[in-house]
């Protein structure tokens, strides 16, 4: 065995390492956190000095005879919103076999349907669950302002599944219109639930499941072979389960919507 064998053997390393080395443009430095040790050491020194000279903090300090005035008031530093970058070439999309609607057994003896306003939804989920980024061509459904949920007799939510729809056009009843070309909706719906009931079931091959990381959040993206493009995105963020089903949208736009939920910001830059 010699150096040549090792160089040649490198050719058999896992493809994930090859891919990682190709697309990672920055390295995360695992430097020793000296600055924290420095701050801690300073703190210990101050405490030690204070203990050695017990009356140091009790000595009265005479007020100054003059007033200190600042020559000018400095302007606060301008605020630049943080831009979150997502590299779409690192996005992994799974094949979706089918999507079917889930169901919940409603028992009027036990359950009660109540309506939550947007404030109540925000209070329950701890944040406004609507994506920060909505493509310009899409508008919010008139039904997004409130949601019907199921509670038990003690008022505890047993089905907290809420849908928010964003489509290109709606009929008079507020239902999304289908386009003439594919007979399908254009836009997406977001289903959210703290309990974990994401409504629709997305069938993917779990043996070859690929995960995309946006920030630290694992997102399972899927695409379905339909006459038009359908993408799905399933993830959990801030204790809430999300399922996005997007019809006739570009992958980049879907990723941007997902990233806007995860980063809680609409300043998302998509890199190709």
């Amino acid at each position: 065995m010699d150096g040549k064998d090792l160089i040649y053997g490198m050719g058999f390393v896992d493809e994930k390492f090859v891919e990682e080395a190709e697309y990672a443009t920055q390295i995360r430095r695992t430097s020793f956190p000296w600055k924290y040790y420095f701050v801690a050491a300073c703190f210990v020194c101050v405490i030690s000095v204070a203990m050695l000279i017990p009356n140091i903090f009790d000595t009265p300090v005479a007020p100054p005879d003059y007033e200190i005035t600042l020559p000018y008031q400095t302007d606060p530093a301008p605020y630049y919103p943080e831009i979150h970058q997502v590299n779409v070439s690192q996005v992994r999309v799974n094949d979706v076999q089918s999507v079917s609607e889930g169901s919940f057994l409603y028992d009027p003896e036990v359950h009660e349907i109540i309506t939550w306003t947007m404030d109540e939804i925000t209070a329950y989920y701890g944040r406004n669950p609507i994506p920060a980024y909505i493509p310009n061509t899409l508008t919010a459904s008139p039904y997004n302002e409130s949601a019907a949920v199921l509670v038990d007799k003690s008022g505890v939510a047993v089905n907290d599944l809420i849908y928010f729809d964003f489509y290109h056009e709606y009929d008079n009843n507020g239902n999304p219109l289908l386009d003439t070309e594919n007979g399908a909706k254009i836009g997406f719906s977001v289903a959210i639930s703290k309990i974990g009931m994401t409504g629709d079931c997305v069938y993917v091959d779990t043996n070859n499941l690929e995960t995309t990381y946006i920030g630290d959040t694992a997102v399972i993206l899927g695409s379905m072979s339909t006459p038009y493009k359908r993408y799905t995105a399933k993830f959990q963020y801030g204790g809430t389960h999300y399922l996005i089903i997007a019809d006739q949208m570009q992958l980049e736009e879907v990723v941007k919507v997902v990233a806007s939920i995860i980063y809680e910001s609409d300043n998302i830059s998509i890199l190709n």
Binding site: D5, L6, G9, M10, G11, F12, V13
Partner: peptide, 15 residues
């Protein structure tokens, strides 16, 4: 000559 695949396997563990 040690099999390259075997070296590759070891390198995977190492990496």
């Amino acid at each position: 000559e040690v099999e390259s695949k075997e070296i590759g396997r070891l390198l995977n563990i190492f990496l």
